[in-house]
Amino acid sequence: MTVELSALQALSLWHRVHVAQVQDDMPDLTVRQMAILLQIYLVPPPHTVRGLAALLAVTKPVITRALDRMGELGLVDRERDPRDRRNVVIKRTVKGALFLERFGDQVIAAAQALD
């Protein structure tokens, strides 16, 4: 599927999605946190702090801080890898899946409003 948007239309779409998030009182996530969350939910597991840091070209503490916030919100869980206790495995949660489903619905609604 190919979608063609002008820069102004793309920004309008992004704006509408953000306004919908504020109106729905959804959690405020940074761009980095959202990128991590989407990686965890859209790419098959397993996901580790080390792997996410390498993928996003940031340090492990940067990932840990983002995961701390998302963990507080119930969007992800973490546990030690039983096979290698040095690794922390990131787990999806029902709340995180519902958050992203709602976010996806907002993107669809915003895109439909562009027509």
Rank of each mutant, 00 (worst) to 15 (best):
V89S: 07
R85I: 12
T30Q: 05
G51S: 14
L37D: 05
R32F: 15
V49R: 13
T93A: 07
Q9T: 00
A97L: 11
V31I: 06
G74C: 03
H15C: 01
V58W: 08
L73K: 04
V19R: 01
W14R: 12
R92W: 02
A110V: 09
G71L: 06
D105V: 04
I90C: 10
R83K: 04
D77M: 14
R69E: 15
A111V: 02
K91M: 13
L37A: 03
L38W: 02
R85F: 10
N87H: 14
A111C: 04
L5K: 03
P82D: 07
R69K: 15
K60L: 01
I108E: 15
R83W: 07
H47Y: 09
G51T: 05
G71P: 12
T64N: 08
F103N: 04
G74Q: 00
L98I: 04
I40L: 05
V22M: 01
I90L: 08
I90V: 14
T30F: 05
V19Y: 00
D84L: 09
K95W: 11
I90Q: 10
L38D: 11
Q33M: 03
E79V: 05
V19D: 00
R86K: 15
R69T: 14
L8R: 13
D77Q: 13
G96M: 07
A113S: 15
W14G: 00
R102W: 06
L114W: 12
Q21T: 04
Q33Y: 02
L56K: 06
A57Y: 13
M70H: 02
T64L: 13
L42W: 11
M70R: 01
K95Q: 15
M70E: 11
E101L: 03
G71R: 05
G104W: 00
D25R: 01
R80E: 09
V88M: 13
F99K: 05
D24M: 09
S12H: 09
D81H: 06
L42Y: 13
Q23R: 14
A97I: 00
Y41P: 04
I63E: 08
F103W: 15
V62A: 15
R102A: 03
M1W: 08
L8Y: 02
M34Q: 03
L73T: 01
L38G: 02
S12W: 02
I36Q: 07
A7W: 09
T2H: 04
P82T: 10
F99Y: 08
L13H: 05
M26S: 10
L100T: 06
K91V: 08
V17L: 01
A109I: 04
W14M: 09
D68R: 09
R85W: 12
L56S: 11
L56N: 13
E101F: 03
D77C: 06
I90R: 12
L98Y: 00
Q23F: 04
V43W: 10
A110F: 10
Q106I: 00
T2I: 04
P61A: 03
A111E: 10
W14S: 10
D77W: 08
L8M: 02
R80L: 12
D77S: 09
W14E: 11
G74E: 05
L11D: 05
P27Y: 01
H15M: 11
A54I: 00
P61H: 08
F103T: 04
R65H: 14
D24Y: 02
L5E: 07
G74N: 07
K91T: 06
P46T: 10
V19Q: 00
